[in-house]
Design a protein around this nucleic acid. Structure first.
Length: 186
DNA sequence: CGAATTTGACCAGCGC
DNA sequence: GCGCTGGTCAAATTCG
């Protein structure tokens, strides 16, 4: 129940979902001093990945990262600790980050999100926004952050898997999500 | 009027 | 142990 590398196993052009370059890395540590590794570009040809659309702008995915999985990378997991919950044990949740090239922060992926926080992060002049899926019982979270390096890039990090059907189907994203469910142990 | 957002406070983990 | 940082809560406020 832990390996989610096959997040979006299909891409429109059959490439660049998993950039087989040094741009793909496992971002496990939250406390690096520099925004290293956030190299972008080189994959700007990967348009049409999900067909995500915002109001009137279709972002291009420039990178896909697996943030945290217990797949066996040495010291890769920095699992979220839900120590605040009374009886909850700490659950490792897979996290995936997408770098999208967009001028808007809110990428409409078809789910309904409620913002529950916003924090200024170090080494980044843009705040990071925290969202939670509003579907009852589905506590999938995501955070959206714009890069100081290149403010045209928006880094969206998903945490957890949706256990329900998409609410607002947008183009082929629903199809992608269906693909996703196949690899979901839930 | 209910739902969503804003925003400061609070808390936990980690490094020094 | 203390302070910094990231993540979450929750009351107040705004929005539809």
């Amino acid at each position: 129940m832990e390996n989610y590398q096959m997040f979006f196993p299909c891409s429109s052009n059959g490439q660049s979902v998993y950039p087989a370059t040094n741009n793909f890395y496992v971002a496990n540590s939250d406390h690096h001093h520099h925004s290293r590794g956030l190299t972008v570009e080189d994959h700007s040809s990967s348009s049409g990945f999900l067909g995500l659309k915002t109001q009137n702008f279709v972002p291009k995915f420039t990178d896909v990262k697996e943030l945290s999985s217990s797949g066996g990378f040495p010291g890769s997991e920095k699992e979220v600790k839900l120590g605040k919950k009374k009886g909850e044990k700490k659950v490792k949740k897979p996290r995936f980050a997408f770098q999208t090239r967009s001028h808007v922060d809110i990428l409409d992926d078809g789910y309904r999100w409620r913002k529950y926080g916003q924090k200024a992060v170090k080494n980044n002049k843009f705040p990071r926004s925290y969202y939670r899926c509003t579907y009852q019982g589905c506590n999938v979270k995501k955070q959206v952050q714009r890069l100081t390096k290149d403010e045209g890039i928006v880094l969206t990090t998903y945490e957890g898997m949706h256990t329900h059907h998409i609410e607002k189907p947008t183009d082929n994203f629903e199809h992608i999500l269906n693909q996703l469910q196949i690899y979901t142990p839930f």
